[in-house]
Nucleic acid binder design. Structure first.
Length: 649
DNA sequence: TTAGGGTTAG
C-alpha cells in the first residue's frame, strides 16, 4: 500500500479527516495534487473544516458533490462562516460559487444577504439582492432589515425598499412589518408609518406581539403616546419588549410619573423586566430626580447580577448625576470595564450641569488621551456647555476652534455655535456674541437669541438687549420668558414706559406661561407643588412657615424682586404672587420636613426665577441649610448665601 | 433564512 493510500484509508471517519487536515502538511499537499478527492464529504466534514478556518480545503471537497448536494454543501459552509463572522471565508465561498457556475436558489442567495449584513458589509448584501432575478418575502425582509438596523440615513432606503416590495406584488409578513416600522420611528417616516398601520390592520397583524411592539414604539417616538398606549392596551399578550417599549415611550417624552405609574402597574400584573426595562425606568427616575428610588433600582440590578450592561451603567451615571449625586455617578463610571461615547457623555453632562468646568475639561482631556472612544457631537455639546457653566469660557472657545479645525472629525453644528454665544455672553463679551451670531453659517434659532438676551440682562446691555428682545417677540411670541427678560432689561434702565408696553403686548398676545412645578423627595415620596398650591396635606404648616420665612429673610436683607412678576397688579399683590412660587413652597416644605442642618434637594421643571434664587440664598444663610436646586438647565448648589452658578444661569 | 424595546443632548 502506498503512502497516499495509507493516508486515505485512515480518513474514513470525518473526525480523522479533520485531524489530518489540521496537522499534516503532507496530506494537504497530496489533496491539492488530487484536486478531486475520490469520495464525497459529508456535511459535518465541511462544517468542521470551515470552522477550523480551512475554507479552501472545504471548497476543494465540494468538487466531489453532485449538483443536488451542492446546495446543501454551500449552505453548510456559509453557515459555518456566518457563525464565526468569517467574512473572508464567506467571500471565498461566494467566489467559488460564481467560478463553478453554480446558480444558487433564492434561499441561498438570501443567506448571503444575511451573511454580508451580519459581517457589516451592507454594500455586498445589497449587491447580492440587486442581482437576484427572483425574490421572496424573506429576501426582501432581510434587505430591508439590513437598512433599518442601521437607522439614521439608512431608514429612508428601508422605506424605499418596502414600497418597491409592495409594487413587486410580494406580500409583507409579520417579520417585514415589525422591521419596516422601526424605520418609521422618526419625523419623516411617520406619515408612511400610519399608512403601514392601515395595511397591518388589513393583513390582521395588529395583534402580533412583534408587530404591535414596533407599532407602539413608532407612535411613542412620534410623540403620539395615546395612540401608542392604544396599541399596547389592545395586545392580546405582552412580553418584556412590548412593556419596555411603552414605559420607555412615556419616559422619552418626559412623562416620567406616567412611566413609573405604568411600570408599577405592570409589575403587579407580573411583567418581567430586563436590563433594557431598568435603563428606561432609570431615565424616568432621572427626570424626577428620585434619588432614593434610583438607588433601589441600582440595588435590585446588583442583586440580579445585571451590572455589567453598558447601557444600564450609562443610565445609572445619568440617574445619579441628575439626582445630584455626582460622586456616585463617578463611581459607576470608574468601575465600568467597557465604556462607550455615551458613558463619557453622561458623566461629562453631569459635571457640566453641576457647573464643574475644570472637571469637564480634565475628563475630556482624559477621554482624548485614552483614545479608546472617539468624542462625538454630544461630547462637544457637554464640554462646551460645561466650560460655559463652569467659568472656563476661554478654554471652551479654544475647544470650539479645535472643533472647527476638525481635530476629532466632528463638525460644529448649530447647537455648538449656540454654546459659543452662551460663553461669550456669560463672560461679558455681549457685543462679540452679537457679532458671532451675525457671522454664523446657520440661521440663529430662538434658543440662540434667548441665550444672548439672558446675557444682555445680566450685563445690563440695553441696546443689544432691546434689539434681541424685540426680534424674539417676533419669532417666538408665545414664550412668556422673553417678555419677562425684556421687561427686566427695561426696568433696570428705568424705562418704565417700555416696561408697560411689553406688559401690554404680552396681554394682547394672550401669552400663557408653562405652569411652574417644583418637587422634593422625602422618604421615597415625591411631593409636588404648583404656584400658590393648597392641595398638599400639610399645606397649613407650609403656609405658616412661609409667612415666618418672609419676615425673617426680610430682616436679614431679602428684598422681593417685583420685576419678576409681569401681572398688572399692585405691589402687595405682586409680593403675594412671588411668595407663592412653587420652588418657595417646596423649599419651605423641605425646611419643615427634614431635621435641622439637613441639606435640601429641590427640582423645578422650568428655569428658576431671579427672586426664588435670591430667596433660596437667604434661606441657606439664615437657616444654615445647603440647598441644591435642579432647574431646567442646571444645578444650583447654594451654601451660606452663595450659589455655584455665580448668579448666571 | 427574515422581526419588536435601551443609555448621553444648551
Amino acid at each position: 500500500m502506498s503512502c497516499l493510500q495509507k493516508i486515505i484509508c485512515r480518513l474514513d471517519s470525518p473526525k480523522n479527516r479533520v485531524l489530518a487536515f489540521s496537522s499534516q502538511k503532507l496530506f494537504t499537499t497530496f489533496t491539492r495534487q488530487l484536486t478531486v478527492p475520490s469520495f464525497p464529504p459529508n456535511q459535518q466534514t465541511l462544517k468542521s473544516l470551515c470552522s477550523n478556518g480551512q475554507v479552501t480545503e472545504a471548497l476543494l471537497e465540494m468538487a466531489t458533490l453532485g449538483p443536488e448536494m451542492k446546495f446543501k454543501g454551500y449552505d453548510t459552509l456559509l453557515n459555518a462562516c456566518l457563525n464565526q463572522r468569517n467574512l473572508r471565508g464567506g467571500r471565498r465561498v461566494h467566489a467559488h460559487m460564481i467560478k463553478t457556475c453554480y446558480h444558487p436558489p433564492v434561499y441561498l442567495r438570501t443567506r448571503f444577504i444575511i451573511f454580508y449584513n451580519k459581517c457589516d458589509c451592507l454594500s455586498d448584501a445589497r449587491q447580492v439582492f440587486d442581482e437576484m432575478r427572483e425574490r421572496n418575502v424573506v429576501s426582501w425582509t432581510a434587505t430591508i432589515s439590513a437598512y433599518s438596523q442601521r437607522g439614521g440615513i439608512y431608514s429612508s432606503e428601508a422605506l424605499n425598499l418596502f414600497i418597491q416590495m409592495l409594487r413587486s406584488d410580494i406580500e409583507p409578513n409579520e417579520f417585514t412589518f415589525a422591521t419596516v416600522l422601526t424605520s418609521c420611528a422618526n419625523d419623516s417616516g411617520f406619515q408612511l408609518g400610519k399608512q403601514i398601520h392601515s395595511l397591518i390592520i388589513k393583513s390582521n397583524f395588529e395583534s402580533h406581539i412583534y408587530v404591535g411592539s414596533s407599532l407602539l414604539d413608532m407612535y411613542a417616538k412620534a410623540g403620539k403616546i395615546h395612540e401608542a398606549r392604544g396599541v399596547f392596551d389592545c395586545l392580546p399578550e405582552r412580553d418584556v419588549v412590548s412593556c419596555t417599549a411603552i414605559i420607555s415611550g412615556y419616559a422619552q417624552l418626559g412623562l416620567d410619573e406616567e412611566a413609573m405609574e405604568l411600570f408599577r402597574k405592570l409589575q403587579v400584573e407580573g411583567m418581567s423586566s430586563n436590563y433594557v426595562t431598568y435603563a428606561s425606568v432609570l431615565t424616568a427616575l432621572s427626570g424626577l430626580a428620585a434619588l432614593d428610588l434610583g438607588k433601589q433600582v441600582h440595588n435590585h440590578v446588583l442583586r440580579f447580577e445585571m451590572p455589567s450592561y453598558v447601557v444600564l451603567q450609562n443610565s445609572l451615571i445619568d440617574m445619579y448625576s441628575k439626582c445630584g449625586s455626582l460622586s456616585y455617578a463617578r463611581r459607576v463610571f470608574n468601575h465600568m470595564s467597557e465604556r462607550t461615547a455615551i458613558s463619557w457623555n453622561a458623566i461629562l453632562v453631569g459635571y457640566s450641569k453641576h457647573g464643574m468646568g475644570r472637571e469637564v475639561v480634565e475628563l475630556f482631556k482624559l477621554m482624548r488621551e485614552e483614545n479608546k472612544v472617539k468624542p462625538d457631537a454630544v461630547t462637544y455639546l457637554a464640554v462646551l456647555s460645561g466650560c460655559s457653566h463652569g467659568g472656563m469660557e476661554d478654554r471652551g472657545l479654544e475647544i470650539f476652534d479645535e472643533m472647527v479645525n476638525c481635530k476629532d472629525g466632528v463638525q460644529p453644528e448649530i447647537e455648538h455655535y449656540g454654546c459659543v454665544v452662551d460663553m461669550l455672553g456669560r463672560s461679558g463679551r455681549v457685543g462679540k456674541a452679537f457679532e458671532f451670531i451675525k457671522k454664523m453659517p446657520f440661521e440663529p434659532t430662538a434658543a440662540i437669541w434667548g441665550s444672548l438676551l439672558g446675557a444682555c440682562r445680566v450685563h445690563s446691555n440695553v441696546d443689544i438687549g432691546e434689539f434681541v428682545g424685540r426680534r424674539l417677540l417676533e419669532i417666538e411670541p408665545e414664550n412668556a420668558g422673553n417678555y419677562v427678560i425684556l421687561s427686566n432689561i427695561y426696568a433696570s434702565a428705568g424705562r418704565w414706559e417700555d416696561v408697560r408696553s411689553v406688559r401690554e403686548l404680552m396681554k394682547e398676545k394672550a401669552v400663557t406661561k408653562d405652569p411652574g412645578r417644583s418637587w422634593i423627595e422625602l422618604d421615597q415620596t415625591l411631593h409636588t407643588f404648583h404656584a400658590s398650591d393648597r392641595s398638599h396635606p400639610r399645606r397649613e404648616e407650609v403656609f405658616a412657615k412661609l409667612k415666618e420665612l418672609s419676615i425673617k429673610l426680610k430682616e436679614a436683607g431679602y428684598i422681593p424682586d417685583l420685576s419678576c412678576v409681569l401681572h398688572d397688579v399692585d405691589e402687595e399683590q405682586k409680593e403675594k404672587i412671588l411668595l407663592g412660587h412653587s420652588e418657595k413652597l417646596a423649599l419651605t416644605f423641605g425646611l419643615i420636613g427634614t431635621p435641622e442642618g439637613t441639606p435640601i434637594r429641590l427640582i423645578k421643571n422650568l428655569r428658576i426665577c431671579v427672586d426664588c434664587h435670591n430667596f433660596a440664598k437667604f434661606v441657606s444663610k439664615v437657616y444654615g441649610r445647603k440647598v441644591s436646586l435642579r432647574d431646567k438647565n442646571r444645578f444650583h448648589h447654594i451654601v451660606e448665601g452663595t450659589c455655584s452658578c455665580g448668579d448666571y444661569w
